[in-house]
Simulated scan of single mutants.
Amino acid sequence: MSGMSSYLKKHTEALVKDVGIEAACKLTGKSKATLGRYYSDADEHSDRFMPIDAVAALEDASRYPHVTSALAELRGITLSYSEDRRNNPSHGVNSDVVALSQRFAMLMAEYNQSIEDGVISINEAKRLLRETLEIQKVLLDMKLHLEAESP
């Protein structure tokens, strides 16, 4: 089994165990044996992977998006996950635009201060990264609001 397959199977197992095997069976409509095959590292199950709709259902019920995170890591993508964002009230596109402009202004102010001496230190880079992640969150909210408003 390739390293990528093994890595995905380990994260699939973590997802099932996070939700609980009984709950995972109910959410996916799959048996314990079938779920076990999805994360088994036995040669006869090396080509079996959990269907994406089952992954989505389990990740919605889990504390962490194990498989999505693993897929992102395999592609060299960094995800920012914040549990407290799930229950934030929706404010719509107009408030997203305001939040985006405010966040961008904070990023530019942080950048201006960081580059003042001609060198961006590690701490300054961390602050810039934090601001860019906040902008990313606002853009994601905006995207979701726009998708919800379009037919």
Rank of each mutant, 00 (worst) to 15 (best):
S2K: 08
S5L: 04
S5V: 06
Y7W: 05
Y7D: 04
K10Y: 08
H11Y: 02
T12R: 04
E13S: 10
A14S: 12
A14D: 06
L15Y: 01
L15G: 05
V16E: 02
V16K: 05
V16G: 03
I21M: 14
I21E: 08
E22C: 02
E22D: 13
A23P: 00
C25W: 07
L27H: 03
G29P: 03
K30G: 00
K30A: 08
A33Y: 04
A33G: 11
T34M: 11
R37W: 05
R37H: 15
Y38K: 10
Y39A: 08
D43K: 12
D43A: 13
D47L: 06
F49T: 02
M50P: 12
V55L: 01
V55K: 01
A56Q: 13
A57G: 01
E59D: 08
D60R: 15
S62C: 10
R63H: 10
P65W: 02
V67F: 01
L71W: 06
A72V: 10
A72G: 08
A72Y: 07
L74M: 13
S80H: 10
Y81F: 10
Y81W: 09
D84P: 10
D84Q: 07
R85Q: 13
R86F: 14
P89G: 02
V93P: 02
V97H: 02
V98G: 00
A99V: 07
L100I: 08
S101L: 11
A105N: 15
M108V: 05
A109E: 12
E110W: 01
Y111C: 04
Y111T: 12
N112K: 14
Q113L: 12
S114V: 05
I115P: 00
S121L: 01
S121F: 01
I122E: 04
I122K: 04
E124T: 13
E124S: 14
R127K: 15
L128T: 06
T132N: 05
E134H: 04
Q136G: 05
V138Y: 02
V138R: 07
D141M: 08
D141L: 04
K143I: 07
L144R: 15
H145L: 00
E149M: 09
